[in-house]
Design a protein around this nucleic acid. Structure first.
Ligand SMILES: [Mn+2]
Ligand SMILES: [Mn+2]
Ligand SMILES: [Mn+2]
Ligand SMILES: [Mn+2]
Lengths: 218, 218
DNA sequence: CTTCATTTTTAGACAAGGCTAAAAATTAAA
DNA sequence: TTTAATTTTTAGCCTTGTCTAAAAATGAAG
């Protein structure tokens, strides 16, 4: 039905739509996919013909219901495979993304269903991201960026925005992972840095770090 | 290193080399890959440039050590994934080949190693085919086609040559699977058909079937 | 040793996806 | 509102892997 390249475009546009009001711009897609705007224009026109997105020259693009569902299907597979890699094969959470980028394109409805069952129908992947259901629906949870919290607020880490190895390994060093409880002890107005408490430890967190940790306040 | 198409060519040539004396012909590759001879010539020339096979115009091709090792690596992945699908995801042995055709191209050394370990370092896939080790070595076992056996010989089914769904489902109906013990009760000279005993049942087996079952005589 | 069928290779074309350079629209600035 | 900067599209080219049609080599038969 859809080629590997097409699936990657749909996935990128799906993610971009999340934090964009209105259509997704050609350049933003090119940025995210690490490709050239001219290539994006070509592909977007092809995908419009296929009915998975709507496109008007010079205005952005928007996924159709069909497009959104297709993208969600790919993301579902990506996240299920990540769970498999971490839970079953004992990969570390910073090692699985690249492999899942490949596995997400394996075509077999039956495989996905069995994998889902085998993993115990997980709701979240190893980075705290929700796994879409068979119909492409994602139940979104209440979560804020750590940077949005104020002094004395408590919460539990439920996800990461950045998923680079460097960032995840940095979190490991600080013993922060999905499920970690923490408290904001102080916040520096000047540079957005914070002092947080994790278990018995307290330490300094840069603004950048705080902007990449999702917290559910408690 | 190698594209999906290249890997598939290497795999096909590897298999063809098994039952061919001398080089593998262009047409035989085209047949196996369901493609045109002209396409094969193109690809084979490219692969020769890459040093994975030797090729002289109008003579067949032969894999180099490097080519054989690469092919074995792909086959190793194919068979490990088949074991995963059957042992862990409870697929039936006639359902896994197509999916493994996709999974065999996933590129990650680490993934293969962990999968191998997770599966308990299996020696054979669900169809009785040996799984090459990390270095591409296959330890070959003594096995004959059922059609080579003569009256009164006993043996155990250790593999299938054909792996089509139809054939495997036919075997299921007869309660024949890897590990099944059987005895040749009679063999018809005229058409190569046989009467065999499996457990308490005895039944008729066509020549075609007998030529697609591997037996280890006991 | 010719001749003819078969096998294999070459030549030329095409679709998918990508890129560069240049043109056209849009948006921001003056 | 005219100009300038930015964004987006178009035009043309490239690579991979495929195909068809035609040419060339090989091998079998007479
Ligand atoms: Mn990921
Ligand atoms: Mn993830
Ligand atoms: Mn198989
Ligand atoms: Mn197999």
């Amino acid at each position: 039905m859809f080629s590997l390249a097409e699936e990657n475009y749909l996935k990128a546009i799906y993610h971009l739509e999340q934090d964009t009001k209105g259509g997704v711009s050609t350049n933003s897609i090119a940025d995210k996919m690490d490709t050239k705007p001219s290539s994006v224009t070509d592909m977007v026109q092809k995908l419009a013909d296929k009915g998975v997105l709507s496109y008007k020259k010079y205005k952005g693009t928007t996924l159709t219901t069909k497009g959104r569902k297709t993208a969600a299907g790919v993301i579902r597979k990506h996240r299920l495979w990540e769970v498999f890699l971490v839970d079953k094969l004992k990969f570390h959470w910073d090692e699985v993304h690249e492999i899942a980028e490949q596995l997400e394109h394996i075509k077999s409805e039956e495989l996905v269903n069995r994998l889902d069952k085998y993993l115990g129908h997980p709701d979240f992947d190893p980075h705290g991201d929700p796994i879409p259901d068979k119909n492409g629906n994602v139940k979104k949870t209440e979560k804020k960026l750590l940077s949005e919290l104020t002094k004395k607020q408590k919460g539990v880490c439920v996800g990461v925005k950045e998923t680079s190895s460097e960032f995840l390994q940095y979190l490991d060093k600080r013993n922060i992972t999905i499920g970690t409880k923490l408290t904001v002890l102080g916040k520096e107005f000047f540079d957005g840095s914070m002092i947080i408490q994790v278990g018995r430890d307290q330490f300094f967190i840069s603004k950048k770090t705080a902007e990449n940790l999702y917290i559910q306040t408690t």
